[in-house]
């Protein structure tokens, strides 16, 4: 599924200046524990989390995740946004609770990869 489809359905916003919305999303994962994410995500995943600091981006880079959806009121710090831009990771924000975000993604046909 293209990132663009997800952005449209969830009305996601992004603090990034340029985004490649044609990138493929092949699965999803939700967690706020970085050890859990590093152990269990797969390349191409979209990651739903409260965490947004430069280490979040390091995890996403290492696991070749496509994008991060930051839930809640945590505005991504500038350091995280610029690091994400240089690593080609897309960051989005939403007012929706995590449960709603995951539910909508599942409804769209996205699944967790095992």
């Amino acid at each position: 599924m293209k990132l663009k489809a997800i952005v449209d359905v969830l009305s996601l916003e992004s603090p990034m200046e340029t985004l490649d919305l044609e990138r493929d999303v092949t699965g999803g994962y939700v967690s706020d524990l970085l050890s859990d994410v590093i152990a269990h995500t797969h390349a191409g995943d979209i990651w739903i989390t409260l965490q947004v600091h430069p280490n979040t981006i390091a995890v996403a880079t290492l696991k070749e995740l496509t994008a991060i959806i930051v839930i809640g009121e945590n505005a991504p710090a500038e350091a995280a946004v610029s690091k994400a831009a240089s690593e080609g990771i897309a960051i989005f924000t939403t007012d929706l609770p995590a449960f709603e975000v995951v539910g909508k993604l599942y409804e769209m046909g996205l699944r967790g990869q095992s």
């Binding site: 590093i38 152990a39 600091h53 430069p54 280490n55 390091a58 995890v59 880079t61 290492l62």
Partner: peptide
């Protein structure tokens, strides 16, 4: 914390550039 994780990314990228066994790359990265 600001640069934490960068060394691991470099290690992984070198193994990828060499074309090393993908299972090893995944485990080394974690």
């Amino acid at each position: 914390f600001a640069s934490a994780g960068e060394a691991s990314v470099k290690v992984k990228n070198i193994l990828k550039d060499i074309g090393y066994d993908s299972g090893v790359i995944r485990r080394v990265a974690v």
